[in-house]
Design a protein around this nucleic acid. Structure first.
Length: 188
DNA sequence: AAAGAGATGGTCT
DNA sequence: GACCATCTCTTTT
């Protein structure tokens, strides 16, 4: 289980996004670690009308303008949290939205956090995965490259798919035509 | 199986 | 005061 250095994250969000597929998100927010494999992501860049950074720096989006490899968390629809990995060079204003995880470890904890859901529904959405991993607004700005951070990203040797599924982003009203959503292909 | 609507609160104009 | 990078439950086919 290899730790990814900050330099690995320092590339455009549209390039980082497919590279994040099959990487592991490790949550140590609770006593027992919870691990999920990234299976769906979306890229957001600064000149993108759908990005939170489109209008320039604000109190909410300041983490997106900081160094790559940090976590950007925001409140969605007043109810859900959404987690992003900051991309690009410092000051750029880019990030990759984590859209879906597949449980790898700590599934009992995930079930306890999302009672009554089928296992396949534990983390298969941006809000759902934050519930399953216990990611909250408190974690906005966490350095994912710090081994002691409550949230980290690891590489367990499973390569990103050579040909990920690519399509338009969802849940947005602007720049819906850009093919910046990436998913693992169907199980082999 | 698909479609519709309500929940709920921070952020920005 | 409008606008959401969503989820869940209910209703209809």
């Amino acid at each position: 289980m290899e730790h990814l250095p900050r330099s690995w994250f320092e590339r455009p969000a549209s390039e980082l996004a497919p590279a994040l597929l099959n990487k592991l998100v490790v949550s140590r927010i609770d006593p027992a670690p919870v691990v999920g494999r990234i299976v769906e992501v979306e890229a957001y860049e600064e000149h993108d009308p759908a990005s939170h950074t489109f209008g320039g720096p604000t109190a909410r989006n300041r983490v997106m303008f900081g160094p790559a490899g940090h976590l950007y968390v925001y409140l969605s629809y007043g109810i859900h949290r959404c987690a992003n990995v900051v991309a690009g060079s410092e000051g750029a204003g880019q990030a990759v939205l984590l859209r879906a995880l597949e449980p790898v470890a700590g599934i009992e904890t995930m079930r306890a956090r999302r009672p009554g859901r089928r296992d396949r529904d534990l983390a298969d959405g941006p809000g759902k995965l934050c519930q399953a991993m216990a990611i909250d607004l408190l974690h906005d700005g966490v350095d994912l490259t710090d081994p002691d951070a409550p949230l980290t990203i690891h590489d367990d040797g499973v390569a990103a798919p050579a040909a990920p599924l690519v399509g338009p982003r969802v849940g947005i009203t602007k720049a819906v035509d850009v093919p910046w959503r990436f998913r693992l292909p169907p199980a082999s």
